[in-house]
Amino acid sequence: MTTAVGNLSIAVQRRFGRQRLRKIILGSIPFAVMIAIWHANTVFDWLPPVFIPPIGDVWEAIFFLQEDCAGFVALVMLDNSCLITTHVFSSIGRVILAAIVGLPLGIAFGILCGMSRTLSKFLEPVGVFANSISGIAWIPLAIVWFGVGWVTTLFIMLNTIFWLMFFNSMLGVRSVAKVYEESVLTMGGSRWDVIKQVYLPGAMPSIITGMRMSMGFGWRALIAAEMIGGDSGLGFMIFTSAAEFKIEEVFLGVIFISIIFMATDKYLLAPLEKWTVERWGLVWRPT
């Protein structure tokens, strides 16, 4: 019996690697504790289901919301009958759109300002001004300008993503050692060669930090924007469900939001960091 357990444990350790397994287990403990307390609440009836619904209800809410969905086509077409997937996809769609527009713009302006003192003197104060106003503070104005809908949510997200990306890229470029630029110039490289081959990769540690930050803050801003100025999306769903006291749908929305963000960070941003700055030895990382 003990050898069987021992063998199993060794097999599992071989499969995942000791360190990774340790990391996964340690990271899961707080979640396990949280879920246990949550379940205990239902079992011992500490708080009524109106405040904290049973886990089963939250799970069932997925199927309840998806009940009227008329198959795969309706699901992909973001039909209003497929409630949960439509909300999830419209939030993710907005994040992707804002990332496609906001990240490259922020990086481009950040690099330009990192290179040119004049341009940075010109744009930096505006940046500080814009950054001082939190994303949500723009919502009322955005609703007046763009009405309720996706333009407002996109505007809020862009506002957050662009400036964070701008500042991070600018500081990243300024931290690149001058000798790299000089070495490319002395090999006959042009300004454009310097941007492509020195500033962009040299600022990569900062740019990736900026991406992680701006996606995190952007995602939060989106949820807030959807609550007030949106007509779909997870934030909208949480807000309307709360108004109707469908507490299990609120819980479901929150869980979806965190899972989506954790997945983006783990499967998109972290690998990007590994593939660039870690491979180039620009950051030190404990193993």
């Binding site: 050692a177 000798v179 790299y180 070495s183 081959q197 180039w280 620009l282």
Partner: peptide, 10 residues
């Protein structure tokens, strides 16, 4: 040829 390590880390 520079004094510092001027080859590009990336």
């Amino acid at each position: 040829v520079f004094q510092e390590h001027a080859i590009l880390p990336w």
